[in-house]
Design a protein around this nucleic acid. Sequence first.
DNA 1: CTGAAAGCGCTAACAG
DNA 2: CTGTTAGCGCTTTCAG
Lengths: 332, 332
Amino acid sequence: VVKISDVAQEAGVSIATVSRVMNNQPNVNGELSKRVRDAAGKLGYRPNGIARSLRTRSTAVITLIISDIANPFFTAITRGVEDVARESGYSVLLCNADEDSEKERIYLGVAEQSQSAGVILSPHKAHSDIRSLRAAAIPVVVIDRPLSGAEDSVLVNSRDGAQAATDHLIDSGWRRPALITGPKDATTAIERLHGYRQAIRAHGGLEEIFVHAPFRQQGGAQAAAALLDSANPPDALFVANAQMALGVLDEVRRRDLRIGTDLGLITFDDAPWAPFVSPPMSVVAQPAYDVGVQAAQLLLNQIKHGVPKEARHVTLSTTLIVRESSRRIRAD
Amino acid sequence: VVKISDVAQEAGVSIATVSRVMNNQPNVNGELSKRVRDAAGKLGYRPNGIARSLRTRSTAVITLIISDIANPFFTAITRGVEDVARESGYSVLLCNADEDSEKERIYLGVAEQSQSAGVILSPHKAHSDIRSLRAAAIPVVVIDRPLSGAEDSVLVNSRDGAQAATDHLIDSGWRRPALITGPKDATTAIERLHGYRQAIRAHGGLEEIFVHAPFRQQGGAQAAAALLDSANPPDALFVANAQMALGVLDEVRRRDLRIGTDLGLITFDDAPWAPFVSPPMSVVAQPAYDVGVQAAQLLLNQIKHGVPKEARHVTLSTTLIVRESSRRIRAD
DNA sequence: CTGAAAGCGCTAACAG
DNA sequence: CTGTTAGCGCTTTCAG
């Protein structure tokens, strides 16, 4: 592998000069500069980023740790952070924690040890351990699920969205709307539950029916099965994310239930396929791309101006998109 | 930040000893070892991975560069890679080249400069430049689209899959099946075109109808529009990936076409939503997870035993899954 | 404007 | 079994 001293020798200058031209610093004689570039080109010199990082204690990459790469919500976020990161010359390294605290811990470790310029984290559980990043003075912004509150965050108001969805189900004439939400220890799952409850309580005489399940297709399927098999099954389902919704759809089909007459359905997240399933799925859409954009901006800001003493929190809103799965069509 | 010498001082030993215990090397007195661990714990010492890498010229991370994070084919691959990488103690850094040669180039650069243990690449175009990785002696395996052939690869036989899909369309009674494939410079797009052509030619008297478009939802929509607006429109569509299929579905709906009577439809990739759209989508499924698994195994093998003189190529097969979108229902 | 030299934090001979 | 020491490849004062 060719290194800086090789180039220096080839060009007949010192390594300091090579370093200067490679970093486009001013104060270099034009002719020398050319000689260095030629030498570098000829030798195929590629600066060693590791060595540079060790010296400068910095890199131009930001680490994005998401909960589940198969979830369209997170992929949309990813695009958002990539778009703004790139504008500022940063690359983004994506880590898929896969709803697993252990994987998350590992990736947090590599982010730290690889001297990431900053990390955007969607914490798996409320007690993800960010301390080592703070100790290493690495900027952090938290997305989707809040952490201690001491760090910048961009969240979306799940609760209101859930309430709106539940209200909509009730207003559409469904009498026993149930909620399939995520695990008990996921903040978003709990927030969605709160919103659902508020709506149920606001209307009188309705029963709260809900079940916790993993934020996965399987989880949705099993939860739906449990609910539908119960003695007094719900007549409508509000599902807490798109992945689970797919599982629910599977279970619904297996039972030959007709959505719209036998069962109402609405889900969180406007997945790309939502308009095309049968019938078109009503959803409460999260501004995922925007979450990514704002998180990246917050992070870049920290990278430039240092970690702020006062954490900034931005909260985005959902929007209810009514298609057909939630409408009630009288069978009679 | 606390470094190795701080720990050494605290524990009253040399930095070499600290290094040894941190790396679980044998030949360390039990008592000293304990003292070091205590000191490290007390001080909150975290080894600096950058420095370590600089010294050892290696890391335990493998870089996976995919073409499009929103494409379920690639997310499935990702899982496969992660599962086997993790078993061997490697982390995987995911880079979304986003069907953009420039982004790909940048990520290739960070993989090299960050001394990645190896990279798995889904090349955007057939002439992606891998040379710097080879120069840096970084193991590479190529997936999905072939490169020069001089590197390990795991591909799937698109051509046969495409042929099978087209045959199926014809056998189902469609008379003017058209293909919507990817860009001209994408190998997979071309392979699928070849397969389509083979099928069309094998049956006599059929016209070849195809259009190239970006491997995106938008691309699918525009291609479908163009085809459907043409003087002599096709009666069936074979779409080259799941993303595009969503766009086609959109266009079909806009025109109020009934799939199954007005139009036959089949697509590459068994996306999670494929069974749930209306009507359930026939697909030719690629063994995506398996592609990831095999690629990771090949890579790990290279990392352990060095780059083989003879490149190994594995080719996986597709499987045709007939659901309803491709069946022809006589309107009369 | 250019070069010499001092490290960044860590590992790995090499002695002891 | 433990410590000393020489770098990994680069950036950056500090002199000249």
